[in-house]
Design a protein around this nucleic acid. Structure first.
Lengths: 137, 137
DNA sequence: CTTGACCCCGTACTACGGTACGGGGTTTAC
DNA sequence: GTAAACCCCGTACCGTAGTACGGGGTCAAG
């Protein structure tokens, strides 16, 4: 157990995540199965911390664990054709851009609200409703 | 029941949401309690549809029902001071901007991946991990 | 060579966000 | 005036994402 490897407890502490949650992510396929010591202890590579933080941030952005697993699976690899990866990646990018648009629309509404506050002017009852109302995907 | 009002069933259909879910949102305080007919039927204002769509979209952006309730409560009203609203709104805007930044960072990583695909060049194992790794809030 | 901190595993429990069910009253259309 | 479609309510149930528990083995320090 050199300093490149982390026991599950250290990893959890470093990433600020419950130890049980790390085990849970492993079960759900979000962390690759780590090698074990002779006695069965998990030895995670140091960059597992990064992966855990990625998972947490992605959840805050509204991705489910299943979607996050798909995001993590996007990589150039000999197993899959470039075209395949490229297609999947472009779908994800479109997803992300939709989210960005929605957030920008919300921000715009909220900014309108703060300027109404500043001016002490009465404004529509709940301006945020003006955002995100569309039918679009 | 003029055509400005919607029964719960119509509202649910228009918003593309399960009827029980509408009741649930009402219980959770995301929809104001609607007036009722003499026999107890709910009569929602037409713009409840907008509100439901806002809720759905916000969920996709990673907001919990509790946070969405807070977003919907942001409005100029006689009940609260301008300064108070302004403060709360600015906090939400900061939230949203953080999300936008994270999404942009993800997008950047994915774009890098597609160009690697295009060039058939080998690239880092999982470039998406390079995004969202930061400690920041 | 024991004590405390750590790890193993399976299983149970929790919170959140719905969704279904079922027994009953109401409204609409024929 | 009756059948179909709709609504009421409470309660039970579900999937997702954890979180806790507990009985047992392991490792490092004194």
């Amino acid at each position: 157990m050199n300093r490149e490897s982390l026991t599950i407890g250290k990893l959890a502490r470093e990433a600020g995540i419950n130890l049980e949650t790390v085990r849970y992510y492993e079960r759900r396929g979000l962390l690759p199965k780590p090698p074990r010591t002779a006695s069965g202890y998990r030895l995670f590579p140091a960059d597992a911390t990064l992966r855990l933080r990625f998972i947490r941030r992605s959840q805050e952005l509204g991705f489910s664990l299943k979607e996050i697993r798909e995001l993590l699976a996007l990589r150039v690899s000999p197993r899959t054709t470039s075209a395949e990866i490229r297609k999947r990646t472009e779908v994800k990018i479109a997803d992300i851009e939709q989210k960005i648009k929605s957030l920008e629309s919300m921000r715009k509404s909220l900014r309108k609200l703060t300027s109404a506050c500043a001016g002490c002017g009465p404004i529509s009852e709940c301006p945020i409703l003006e955002s995100l109302g569309g039918e679009g995907a």
